[in-house]
Design a protein around this nucleic acid. Structure first.
Lengths: 104, 104
DNA sequence: TCAATAATTTTACAACTGTTCAAGTATTCA
DNA sequence: TGAATACTTGAACAGTTGTAAAATTATTGA
């Protein structure tokens, strides 16, 4: 009856979705990738590859995982597949994390 | 020579630290816990336990993981161990994630 | 159509991680 | 001191997940 703790009431489905987003960000290389995509432009895989310096197949895995979660999305244009940020709020999330990094 | 992409220049150590923070948030139950701690108050384990409804030892594992990462911290007072949010920016991070949830 | 380029997919294995259970530590109070 | 409360720790297994290698799909252009 007496609710003593007023806080965000998140549904179980949203808890799962939110944690999924976080798990999608939980790799240094993915943060590097998103760092690139943050500017809002679209990048082909080979340009992303040039930045991150890992195996192409590994990059592909990371990209498709983030795509499945909904963090990024992609489209083909000729021989190239372009990726771009789908969850624009990610940029703000990084802002928060960077600002608290100062204290770490 | 010609740098065409101006973006955040994050050191490898920070990339690792940031991804570690995200990995610490990548569980529904941890988000529930942080939802509680978000109000800035300190909570003993049994109160957290009452909210999340999982095994005490499992909760303890989750708490110690988040503590190691630096997301929360704790202190003992008599028989009780109190936990509190250590990374205040987490609240802002959640704000971002919640706001983008509307579009999901 | 064949070679070259661009990226993905599949498979397989190693490594990591979540979860549970049982035992252990710390504190209080009778 | 010893029982009860509050929480943690460690080991073990199961399941997941990251990574690498090889094969595959898709597109372009000669």
């Amino acid at each position: 009856m007496a609710t003593t703790i007023p806080n965000r009431q998140i549904s179980p489905e949203k808890l799962v979705k939110i944690s999924e987003i976080f798990s999608g960000l939980a790799y240094p290389v993915r943060i590097q990738i998103l760092e690139l995509l943050e500017d809002g432009k679209d990048y082909p895989v080979n340009e992303i590859l040039a930045k991150v310096q890992i195996e192409a197949s590994l990059l592909s895995h990371h990209l498709s995982k983030m795509k499945n979660i909904g963090i990024i999305d992609s489209y083909r244009e000729g021989r190239f597949i372009y990726y771009r940020l789908a969850l624009k709020e990610i940029t703000k999330v990084f802002d928060c994390i960077y600002s608290c990094e100062l204290k770490l």
